[in-house]
Computed example of a mutant assay.
Amino acid sequence: MSNNGGHGAGVRTALVIGGGVAGPVTALALRRAGITATVHEAYPSAADGVGAWLGLAPNGLAGLAAVGADAAVRAIGQPVPGVVMADGAGNRLAGFGGFPELPATLTMPRDRLFRALTDHAVAEGVRFAYGKRLVAAEETPDGVTAHFADGTSATGDILIGADGIRSTVRTVIAPQAPAPEYGGVLSFGGYAAADSGVETEPGAMHFAFGRAFMGYWRGPDKRLIWFAGLPTDTPPGPAELAQVPAAEWLTRLRELYAGHVPGEQLLRHTGPDELMVVGRMERMPSVPHWHRGRMVLVGDAVHAPSSSSGQGASLAIESAVELARCLRDLPTPDEAFAAYEALRRPRVEAIGLHAAAVNKVKAGKGEHAPVFPAPEEMFRPLHFHRIEWEEKVRAGVTP
């Protein structure tokens, strides 16, 4: 895809730290803006293996379309346009078939999205460097130098932290930035047998609220894919989580979801080998400083909204595209970063706060039957949001 101008901020090269969702999309967007970006990923290779599933909403797909990556992701995603909300006794509360003028939300395993975005970026000429765990970054007269754990370094005009909720770049930019906030719930996912007896509406994601929350839908292989939470005030760390056998977690979940419709049934038809231990449900509280000098944050590194939002990947994609527009059109990195923050902060923080409220419900610390607006009203400001790539960003922009 050709770019349309570029170098507005005098930026020709960028170091992108992190190769998840935000990293490849940022590099693609920068390339379209005329800026050469190299993605530095801490792990030795692109993500592989089975992981938790995620949803990519229509606004996220629109962001991918702006950088030509939407077709690559549509090829791996399962369309799930509808939503059905119910209580834990099986009573339907609301339904929504999706906006007919928008593409359907797609669901997919997280690692398959990482791989699709990486493969597409590589095909477009983006360079990836693996085994590059950032340990320090410093501004130099010519730009920013990143230092990696393997003893190597790299220099670019700017450095972009796309390194997730435990961002190293965030600690460099703002050492006093808050840590990720635990939402009171350990997250799990799994696969229940196709013949579990649980009914689903075609193309619909089901949400069942009650004493405990569960979401589920029917996957491409007809098995039921579900996600659920185990409320706990004192969550174990990743190492402790890994030491608990899957069968033990399953027992605890079955106890919690006894009497829940359809949680009890889904868990009864899920074996230990079909359980995914996702870990602590977390979000980023408001980060006071998104950028400093020639360094800036994007995606979960600065605005992870927690999985309750259904918007984490989509917001990361939006921010990557918006950041590239600002760097394309404004004269200095500082002005570009300030405009990017002004354009993005209100939206991502509002979505994050709403997700935090939902987390309280899931943790048993909020209303058992949350009052939702009509689904159309709830999803419209999320799904219709568009970043107009061709529009010029003005200095001193406000939301």
Rank of each mutant, 00 (worst) to 15 (best):
F213T: 14
G237W: 03
P236Q: 04
R252A: 02
P220T: 13
G190H: 05
A192P: 06
L253T: 03
P236A: 05
P220D: 15
S187Y: 08
P245I: 09
W226Y: 00
G190C: 03
L250C: 01
A246I: 02
P231R: 09
G184R: 12
M214N: 01
Y257N: 05
Q243P: 07
Y182L: 10
L186D: 01
F213K: 08
A239I: 12
F213V: 12
G189E: 01
A247F: 10
K222M: 10
P238E: 07
W249H: 04
A193D: 12
T234M: 10
G210I: 03
V185C: 01
E181I: 13
R223M: 13
R254M: 04
L256V: 06
F213Y: 15
M205W: 14
A208K: 00
P236W: 03
E240T: 09
G210N: 14
L241V: 03
H260P: 05
G215Y: 06
P235Q: 09
T251V: 13
E255C: 07
E181A: 15
G219P: 11
A208R: 03
L186W: 00
P202R: 05
E201P: 10
G184D: 11
A258L: 11
L241M: 09
A194K: 05
P231K: 14
G237I: 11
E201M: 15
V185P: 03
